[in-house]
Design a protein around this nucleic acid. Structure first.
Lengths: 154, 154
DNA sequence: TGATATTAATCGAAGCAACGATATTTGACA
DNA sequence: TGTCAAATATCGTTGCTTCGATTAATATCA
């Protein structure tokens, strides 16, 4: 068994299976990375989910997206996108307009202010990603990606 | 670039760097695994953190652990362990006793009821781990563990 | 000793998340 | 057409998280 996680957990026989050890390593790594992301976003008062939504909307461009489409594209699934959007709208980063074509759907768009915020975050976010994972090098990153995609394919 | 995550995100140019792609793959995979864990734990009304605490305490045995030590050993860091323990104590899965040696610390122990709960969860948890990651096989799991540990070492 | 700092755990308040239930609008079809 | 089902987004409630402040006990050291 690998020693690093064992040391972190301070137990002598922490794992009952290789699958479990992998799981714990994944969760730990994720936690570690998310912590860095949160710190980078904290000055602008955005949560990772909110940042994710703004980027999704920037990707969608002028035509915007329906609420449900935003929910589908989020990295982590949010059971109540409405209130997430509420907070972004209150701060002026997105706008909502009800469609006349189908009055059930509400189209969401990122505002100019939202785009400015994203622009300001671009460099810091690139930096933190690099700092956190850059030391692995291209080859290992690709291996890791490959393994993770395979892990999700069940 | 790998195709799977790109399809999930439904964007044509989602990544500005390999590090970012790795990060997103990690978060997605974690999310996916945690979802399975949550479903397995739901019948007993435990959150992953609560389950984690019970296992930590079982590992510590009769002598128990101080609150702070529990917090240190958790997989995901919780800024307020007190209330997490409150809920477990209310349900009878743990007990708390103030130490006379140093009256600042409170020792936490898992109760018999807590141990029973853990025993009942053992098989379902082993099953879900196997179902989620077993298809990778021993070799790839070890590779993944190795890469994840390396990723955290920055 | 007495004053200050440190450590351990808890609590108050505010905001957030999760789960269902509820409008509102549209579609399907007898 | 009228009725029922489906889709879309929102809201109500309850419980959980988080942040900082607070209490209490111990350690430090002039």
């Amino acid at each position: 068994m690998s020693g690093r996680l064992q040391a972190e957990l301070r137990q002598s026989k922490p794992f009952s299976s290789l699958e479990q050890e992998t799981h714990l390593n994944l969760v730990r790594t994720c936690e570690h990375l998310e912590q860095g992301i949160e710190e980078t976003l904290k000055p602008s008062g955005l949560s990772p989910s909110q940042y994710n939504v703004l980027r999704i909307l920037r990707g969608a461009g002028e035509q915007g997206l329906a609420c449900g489409e935003v929910a589908e594209r989020m990295v982590t699934r949010d059971p109540d996108v409405t209130r997430l959007l509420d907070r972004l709208e209150q701060r002026g980063f997105i706008s909502r307009t009800r469609e006349n074509r189908d009055r059930r759907v509400i189209t969401v768009r990122v505002t100019g202010e939202g785009l400015n915020l994203l622009r300001d975050l671009e460099q810091p976010m690139a930096d933190i990603h690099r700092r956190q994972l850059g030391h692995l090098g291209e080859k290992k990153l690709e291996m890791l990606i490959q393994l993770l995609e395979e892990a999700r394919a069940d």
